[in-house]
Every structure is written in C-alpha cells, then in structure tokens.
Amino acid sequence: MDRQPCTYILASKPYGTLYIGVTSDLIARLYQHRTGSVPGFTSRYTVHSLIRFELFGQMEGAILREQQLKRWHRQWKINLIESDNPQWIDLAPSLGLPSMGRDGC
C-alpha cells in the first residue's frame, strides 16, 4: 500500500480497548504500534490489532473523520466496526503484516 491518508481503529481484543488514529502511511504506523517503538497508549494497553481503516484522498478528510470518530459513543464505534468486520479479525495480514494473536484480534 502506498502512502495514503487513512483513519484507522485498533483493538486490544474483541470488545476491548479501542484506539483511533490517522496517518499517511498505515503500514509504517502499524509497525510502530506493534513494535512499541513509539511509547504511548497503544503500547501501554497492548492495542495492536487493526480492525478497521478508511482511506481518503486528502489528509484533511482523514483528520476530520478521526475527530468525528473520537467523539462517538463507544457503542457507535462498535457498531461501525461490526458493520464490516463482525468477527473483529485483524486486518493487518491483508496488508502484508503478521497477525498479532488470538481471539480473532
């Protein structure tokens, strides 16, 4: 996947801790989350499984979507995730990264 603005959602496990982020390079950003190379929320709470991502033509659209999703109630986020990924499957392997583990996440 080439560099492209993207909003993404990570989870620690199905129905676990969620993280919403934005990036122009999803593969590189996932690698950072998964290796803990950038200390913070995702490394502290082991939030590494990619369960949803949305691609955008411009970074402005991705940032606006990230801000919108962060304001949503948790159940709305879960409903959004399950609309496309009802099993909470780690989508990273479809992008060429290894899966992070068990429980479908």
Score class of each variant (00 low, 15 high):
Gln75Met: 15
Thr35Met: 06
Pro86Asn: 13
Thr35Gly: 00
Glu54Asn: 07
Arg65Val: 04
Lys77Val: 12
Trp72Val: 04
Ser12Gln: 10
Leu64Glu: 14
Leu50Trp: 03
Ser49His: 15
Ala92Arg: 06
Phe56Met: 02
Ala62Ser: 05
Ala92Trp: 06
Cys6Ile: 04
Ser49Phe: 10
Lys70Cys: 03
Val38Tyr: 08
Thr23Ala: 01
Arg52Ile: 06
Ser94Lys: 11
Ile89Lys: 15
Asp2Cys: 13
Tyr31Cys: 12
Asn85Glu: 09
Thr35Asn: 02
Thr7Cys: 06
Ser12Val: 10
Trp76Phe: 13
Gln58Met: 13
Tyr8Ile: 05
Ile89Trp: 11
Tyr19Trp: 02
Ile9Asn: 04
Glu66Ser: 02
Ala11Lys: 03
Ala92Cys: 02
Asp103Ile: 11
Ala62Trp: 01
Arg71Asp: 07
Met1Tyr: 10
Pro39Met: 09
Ser43Cys: 12
Ser83Gln: 12
Ile63Tyr: 05
Asn85Ile: 10
Gly36Asn: 07
Ile9Phe: 05
His73Gly: 09
Gly57Tyr: 12
Ser12Ile: 06
Pro93Ala: 02
Cys6Phe: 05
Leu18Lys: 03
Gly16Arg: 11
Leu10Phe: 03
Gly101Pro: 04
Leu10Thr: 02
Ser99Asp: 13
Ala92Tyr: 05
Arg74Glu: 09
Leu30Asn: 01
Arg71Gln: 10
Arg102Glu: 15
Leu69Ala: 06
Asn79Gln: 15
His33Met: 03
His33Ala: 00
Cys6Tyr: 08
Ala62Phe: 02
Trp76Val: 10
Gly96Asn: 06
Gln58Asn: 10
Ser99Gly: 12
Ala11Phe: 04
Val47Ala: 14
Ser94Glu: 15
